[in-house]
Lab assay of single mutants.
Amino acid sequence: KELVSALYDYQEKSPREVTMKKGDILTLLNSTNKDWWKVEVNGRQGFVPAAYVKKL
């Protein structure tokens, strides 16, 4: 599985998104959309802005 690192804090703005803190390591589930990537963090799945994470 592919991992990404959070470059910035992000506070979810809808139920489809997830909150992350800078430095968090997230499991990348889907990166086909260039703007929003689906990740899993702390057992929750949702979307984060692609520009806020980088692949490890």
Score class of each variant (00 low, 15 high):
L56W: 11
P49A: 02
Y52C: 15
V18Y: 04
Q11E: 14
F47N: 04
V39F: 01
K22L: 06
G43A: 05
K21L: 08
R44E: 05
K21N: 09
K34C: 11
L7E: 07
V48R: 00
L56N: 07
S31D: 15
V39T: 00
V39P: 00
L26C: 12
E2A: 11
R44H: 08
T19E: 04
L7K: 09
V48H: 01
N42R: 10
K54L: 12
L28W: 01
P49G: 02
V4C: 15
F47T: 03
V53Q: 00
R44W: 05
S5G: 09
F47W: 15
Y10W: 11
R16E: 13
V39Y: 00
P49S: 02
S5Q: 15
G43R: 04
K38L: 15
A50R: 09
K13N: 10
Q45C: 12
G23D: 07
K21T: 09
V18G: 01
K22S: 08
S31I: 08
Y8A: 12
K21R: 13
G46I: 03
E2L: 13
Y52S: 12
R16F: 14
W37D: 01
L26A: 10
V41A: 12
R16T: 13
G23C: 07
G46E: 02
E12M: 13
S14T: 12
G43W: 03
K1C: 15
L28G: 00
E2I: 15
D35A: 10
Y8Q: 12
G23Y: 06
V53C: 15
F47G: 01
T27A: 10
K13S: 11
S14E: 08
V48I: 09
E17H: 07
V4I: 09
E17M: 05
V41I: 15
S5A: 15
K13W: 04
V53M: 05
V39N: 00
K22H: 06
G43I: 02
A50C: 07
Y52V: 07
S5K: 15
G43T: 05
W37P: 01
L28V: 08
S14Q: 08
F47Y: 15
M20P: 00
T32A: 12
K34L: 10
W36V: 03
M20A: 02
L26S: 03
K34N: 12
Y52Q: 05
A51S: 14
V41L: 15
R44F: 07
Q45S: 12
V18C: 10
V39G: 00
A6G: 03
L28H: 00
A6V: 10
E17L: 05
R44P: 00
N30H: 08
K13V: 08
T19Y: 04
R44S: 06
A6T: 03
D24Y: 04
P15A: 13
Y10G: 00
T32Q: 12
K21G: 05
N33C: 10
N42Q: 09
A51H: 13
V53K: 00
T19V: 03
D9N: 09
Q45F: 08
K55Y: 12
G43L: 05
V53I: 11
V53T: 04
P49F: 03
F47D: 04
W37N: 01
G43E: 06
E40A: 08
T27L: 14
T19F: 04
V4N: 02
V39M: 02
Q11C: 13
P15F: 10
Q45D: 07
V4S: 05
K1Q: 12
Y8V: 12
K1W: 13
A50F: 02
